[in-house]
Design a binder for these strands. Sequence first.
DNA 1: CGGGATCCATTGTGATACTG
DNA 2: CAGTATCACAATGGATCCCG
Lengths: 110, 110
Amino acid sequence: MGDLRFKRSVELTLKVIGGKWKPVILCHLTDGVHRFGELKREMPDITQKMLTQQLRELEQDGIIDRTVYQQVPPKVEYSLTEYGQTLKEVLVVMAEWGIRHEERTGVEED
Amino acid sequence: MGDLRFKRSVELTLKVIGGKWKPVILCHLTDGVHRFGELKREMPDITQKMLTQQLRELEQDGIIDRTVYQQVPPKVEYSLTEYGQTLKEVLVVMAEWGIRHEERTGVEED
DNA sequence: CGGGATCCATTGTGATACTG
DNA sequence: CAGTATCACAATGGATCCCG
């Protein structure tokens, strides 16, 4: 597992979905289409700037789709691409480990 | 999947194994015990300070063990704890996705 | 050999104001 | 509503020197 290929792949994955905000954004989008304002409301601590920035990066990586409705007021919807769906499995495994870790550190029974 | 519990768990996992260096360190330690100098050699781009720092954090989270041999010259060995072993699955899933992503972005056949 | 401590450059992030 | 632009600040990471 310590071979170069393996390392590079793990790093790559984390470059795409890692960081403070992307995993949370992805969690929400796994539930379906969300508007910009919805996401902002669901993530009160993120700034508008960061949300925009992270969404753009996910879009460029082919993870999410951005649909702009040319109307007033503007409406923009975000959703997982077919490809982005493949990340669900990764998110689930991370969530499962996180839950175990939470329980463990809570009990601290080492 | 967008529920609070799920989100929190994913974030927690990423707090423990995320970042620039921890996943790489963990990849190496999945192969077995490593000395400090070994890890440093295997990760030429990391500074001594960062390596030390990241190892400390992993140790505090119960992911790795640190064994100091009181001798001259000093010898310090790092290894995954039993608990740390549970991360292998997470690493594998991330690596698998990363490999797919690598191939995809290489081919770009959308 | 395996660090600790310090200082500094780079980057990331937030607050705010403005726009189509 | 969904951004963009700018500035300020905080977090991160690196270089260097020192120590047991």
